Amino acid sequence: MPIPEDVTGDEIDKDVRQELQSLPKTLAEDVAKNLVMVARLIDEDPEGAYGYSKVALRLASRVAAVREAAGFAAYANQKYAEALAEFRAARRMSGGVELWPLMADCERGLGRPEKALDMAGASEVHKLDKAGQVEMRLVTAGARRDMGQLDAAIVTLQSPELASNAVQPWTARLRYAYADALAAAGRQGEAREWFAKAVEADKDGSTDASDRLAELDGVEFVDAFDESEGESDGSRDEQAPVDPEEGGKE
């Protein structure tokens, strides 16, 4: 696959670069460039990222960072069996536990929430850093919901991290998951409160908490310019958001 001219391979993390030192220099450079493309595309073009990950995998399948990147690319494309296999391989090579929550979530994706719950009780969870433990909690709550255990999912998300006023990288997603579970349980007032808290923490718009909050408030935004009326009389009528008391979203 073509590599843009601005990609040199030097953009990769220093730890990954160190892993690639076991390869011949030219090969290491090629692998690095493909890994850069995986990271660059995985959010906006996961299919493209997957293609570059397969190239890197073909070039250096015995490098843990390559297997991990292949796992992330497969995961982004909902290829959960493939992602799980790659994450397991990366874990065997590196000996780390960082991928444990993702492996458990792959089990969910494969329709095996019971397996994800088993992994939530494993000793590896205690070795995770704080971010990893929060991620594991999110996966566990999701598995509970998969099994129809909504109340258990809500309890699972209740934690010191959820109660904390400090904003961490995981805060918005944790608050959002809790709000979503409350909404599914019909606890709309509490759900609104937590969607609002998720909005406060979600500075980069990683969730649709603001939309969910507006939906609960019965606010519906309409186009400021009605094309049909504009064509008929040549005017442009601005419309404000619909007042919930006058007929909002049903």
Rank of each mutant, 00 (worst) to 15 (best):
A32E: 08
R17G: 14
A122K: 11
V36Y: 05
F195G: 03
L84Q: 15
A120C: 01
V16M: 08
S232W: 08
D223P: 13
A131F: 08
L110W: 07
S94P: 05
R212W: 03
M119H: 12
M1H: 13
S210Y: 07
A65N: 07
D118M: 09
E238L: 12
V97M: 01
L162Y: 08
V63D: 02
V199S: 01
D237L: 10
E246S: 07
F195S: 05
E215K: 08
R108F: 05
A198L: 08
L57E: 11
D105I: 02
A196W: 00
D223M: 11
R144Q: 14
T8M: 01
N34Y: 01
S53P: 07
P160C: 03
V134S: 03
F72V: 08
A56G: 00
A163C: 03
S53H: 11
L182W: 07
N165L: 09
D13F: 07
A181M: 11
A153T: 13
P241C: 00
I12D: 10
G189N: 14
V125L: 10
R92Q: 13
D180M: 11
E229D: 14
A152W: 02
F195H: 06
R173S: 11
R173Q: 06
W194Q: 02
E11R: 02
L20Y: 03
F225S: 15
A90I: 04
A181Q: 09
A143S: 11
A191W: 08
L150M: 15
D204C: 00
A224R: 15
L117D: 10
V36C: 09
E245W: 15
V31I: 06
K33N: 05
A191C: 04
D105Y: 00
K197I: 00
R144C: 10
